[in-house]
C-alpha cells in the first residue's frame, strides 16, 4: 500500500516490474477499496428507511374539488379529488401542445383521483395550488412560485422552466376510499 506507482528512485531495479510488488500493490488497492465501499454504502438508505417507503391515504374525507397533501418518503404527495369539469379539461387537451406529452388517462387509475408527487420537476420546490386560496397558475392546476412553472389539472407542465410533468408515484387502491402509496 505504501508503494508508490510512479516512484523512480530505484537505482538497482530490483523490484521494478516485480511480480510480487505488483501483487502487493494490487492487493493493497483491493483492501483499501473494500474498506471504503462499506463507508460509501452506509450513506445509502438504511433498512428502516426502506421499510417505511409506503404510506396509506384515506380518501373518504376529501370532498370533490379539494386536495390533500400527505408525506411519503419525506416528500409531499398531492391527492386531488377532481371535479367533472377539471377531468374534462384535462382529457381534452391536444397532446401536441404539451412540452411533455402524456394523456390524462395514463396518469390516473380512477379519473376522479389524481395522485402526484408534489415536487416541481425543475429544481425541487413544492408547487402551490393545494388550497382554495392558492394561486393555481394559468392552467388551473398548480403553480411553482420558485421559478414560475405552470401545471394543469392533470399535473402536466404547460409553461415555465420545468422539463417534465409532475411525477405519479406508484400506488394502488386498497379499497374505494383507501390508497397505498409506495
Amino acid at each position: 500500500m505504501d508503494d508508490n506507482a510512479n516512484h523512480d528512485g530505484n537505482d538497482d531495479g530490483v523490484i521494478r516490474r516485480d511480480f510480487l510488488a505488483y501483487t502487493a500493490v494490487g492487493m493493497g488497492a483491493i483492501g483499501v477499496g473494500s474498506f471504503l465501499w462499506p463507508m460509501v454504502d452506509s450513506m445509502n438508505p438504511a433498512r428502516d428507511v426502506l421499510a417505511l417507503a409506503s404510506t396509506e391515504i384515506d380518501l373518504s374525507a376529501v370532498a370533490e374539488g379539494q386536495s390533500i397533501t400527505v408525506k411519503w418518503r419525506g416528500k409531499p404527495v398531492f391527492v386531488r379529488h377532481r371535479t367533472a369539469e377539471e377531468i374534462a379539461v384535462a382529457e381534452s387537451v391536444d397532446l401536441g401542445d404539451l412540452p411533455d406529452p402524456e394523456a390524462d388517462s395514463t396518469r390516473v387509475q380512477n379519473a376522479q383521483w389524481l395522485v402526484l408527487v408534489g415536487i416541481c420537476t425543475h429544481l425541487g420546490c413544492v408547487p402551490i395550488g393545494q388550497k382554495d386560496a392558492d394561486a393555481k397558475g394559468d392552467y388551473d392546476g398548480w403553480f411553482c412560485p420558485c421559478h414560475g412553472s405552470h401545471y394543469d389539472t392533470s399535473g402536466r407542465i404547460r409553461r415555465g422552466p420545468a422539463p417534465r410533468n409532475l411525477e405519479v408515484p406508484p400506488y394502488q387502491f386498497v379499497s374505494d376510499t383507501l390508497i397505498k402509496v409506495g
Partner: peptide, 13 residues
C-alpha cells in the same frame, strides 16, 4: 443500535 441493526454495514463501522 439503529446503526448496528439497520444501517448498511453500520455494525462494521
Amino acid at each position: 443500535e439503529r446503526i448496528m441493526r439497520d444501517l448498511n454495514y453500520g455494525w462494521l463501522l
